[in-house]
Write a protein that binds this DNA or RNA. Structure first.
Lengths: 198, 198, 198, 198
DNA sequence: AATGAATGAGCATTCATTCAT
DNA sequence: CATGAATGAATGCTCATTCAT
């Protein structure tokens, strides 16, 4: 079954491939249009400018995670299980589209001080969800008290670090292995650290 | 006492400020020259091209860490203490120059597939040092066995995450606080995780 | 009747004027664009780079001569008549566009060791045509044997020399006179030299 | 015996090599200085600017020819013998320094409309000497009447053409052969043309 | 005279964006 | 909506020339 993509979706998916390969700054609108088999002008019927394409890419990914986050928040699981569920979703999504993972991991550079909000939403918002989760966990006596602001930043960074390790791994087998074991390894690290005496 | 900087050092320090503010891609050689109070051409007496300035910035920072890493490796401390010493150096350096921290944290994007080796040395090499430390620690029975490849990537990411949190924190007090407590918090997380029952 | 030139042709003709006036190296793409009444960027929609404009100028002129050369080769005239026909075409073309003549005569300097093939095709290829003609003529007993390699080079140089004399002559009347009599004078020189006793 | 060159001569000879290899426009003063083993600044103690180096190169070559021309003029030889003597000198000089030949042949492009007089002296003056010789020859009944202006331009061009053929010939044996036979071949061509019935 | 670091005007080229068709 | 030729501001880099030492 061939799914006919609407134009905006076609552009998003093409841009992901192109930007993953060349990076945002080395990706031209001409290249994206060419790869998508459309005219440059068409891009501008769906996006105000090049930046907004990246914005949209992040927005879509962010929304997936947000939806999952809200779902998890509504459940009554222990916090760490919620976190694990989110990590599983995250790495599954990346496994499903390595290119999008490369973008999430590399395009830290907010282009200018512009209207690209979903990138900063991602880079700053996601840690805040984690912080929120951690605070709840502390309240509920699930975890020890700690500087949740820092720990949340560390956890987010750790996730990004493992994702980066995976998406830039050239050996596809190793890549898959990392992506599969990442959630458990991370939860393990977060939970009990690496000490012998746990 | 005014320290007369040699040109290359002047350019490096100016570029750090400019690139931290605008990002590598939005920093022009003209802007760097202007800020440094020199002519554009002078930059090219010391750097082959713009990319090489960023390369040099990373190289200098990398060397500081490498020197510290080698020193620590030669000592007989427990691995986790070595790691803590390195984190302390890292965050102290960042505290000393926030701008350089912003660059280390944001410029993940290797410009092109070019000769910028010290950026990839930093992004790939540093995790390998950590991996090396972890492997030694496992051999010496200091920590539990784990997938050091993944855990090293996670740790490096965590450090970058906390650094990012700090360097983009606008409140200088909070920033300092994060930078000061970062090493201990991270070691704490790495060591015992966040579980209650540690 | 205003002939609407397509862009590539417009650029070629404008570049001929500009390069004839300033020389290739002192002609800027900005100047060419300005004179053509288009934007610089437009040039690059039709030419890969500045060099390729010159390349194209030579290619067009070369093709005219080549076409004529092939036509002449197919006829059964004596070689010297073929040569004269070619000279007549050549000088008529120059008379028709002095600027192009200036370029053909002055831009001996292949810009770099680059892809500019039609310049060397012109500077090396045309003498080879002449050599070919001479060899045929010798075979057919039309002319005496001689070192055709050298004589061809000399003849090509002589043509270039007379063309140079004409195109840089400021007096338009004299210029026209030279261009008109050039073919016959050259053929005369080539045929019988300047001796009294011919 | 090592001849210690004075600075100006050193620069001239180095510039000949560099400009022959890269062409005037692609030869940098830095490169010339480096090859000469001196500082860039030193060049400017002997030449007002880069252009003046080329000017001087032509001036030196021009003077050699001029001296020979004057000498020949003072003799009572038939004009064609004078011409042959001059051609022999010319090609001998080129054989002696191929690089200088390449420059004489390629740098037709007067850099700007500047003070470089010896290039135009060479390109316009030498044909005038020839014209002068031809006029004398006609007066003395040595040669037939002809448009000496055109024939002189043609002869000069022929000489340049053969020189070009020689100096860009890669096979050194062929090169030498051309340079040796050039004067006679040219005189032969000029005298009797290439007709059978001479 | 010799040096060579510093200069900065100058230029080729790119590429996001527009808009007439 | 789709197109893609045209645009031109922006920018990295070069290199002839200067001048303090």
């Amino acid at each position: 079954m061939v799914v006919k993509l609407n134009r905006k979706e076609l552009i998003r998916q093409t841009a992901i491939q192109v930007m993953a390969e060349y990076g945002y700054h080395n990706s031209t609108t001409d290249k994206i249009a060419e790869e998508a088999g459309i005219a440059v002008g068409t891009i501008y019927n769906y996006f105000r400018n090049k930046e907004q394409i990246l914005e949209y890419i992040f927005a879509v990914e962010l929304e997936k995670r947000q939806k999952a986050f809200v779902e998890q928040q509504q459940s009554s699981k222990p916090v760490l299980e919620k976190l694990q569920a989110l990590l599983e979703l995250h790495f599954a999504e990346i496994a499903n589209n390595i290119a999008v993972g490369q973008i999430l991991v590399r395009e830290q550079q907010l282009p200018g001080k512009s209207e690209v909000t979903s990138i900063s939403d991602f880079l700053q918002g996601v840690p805040q969800w984690i912080e929120e989760l951690l605070n709840t966990a502390i309240e509920q006596g699930e975890i020890c008290t700690c500087d949740t602001r820092i720990i949340a930043a560390a956890m987010f960074g750790a996730v990004q670090g493992v994702a980066a390790k995976a998406v830039f791994e050239e050996d596809k087998n190793i890549q898959n292995q990392i992506l599969q074991s990442a959630p458990k390894e991370l939860i393990h690290l977060f939970t009990g650290g690496i000490s012998l005496d746990r």
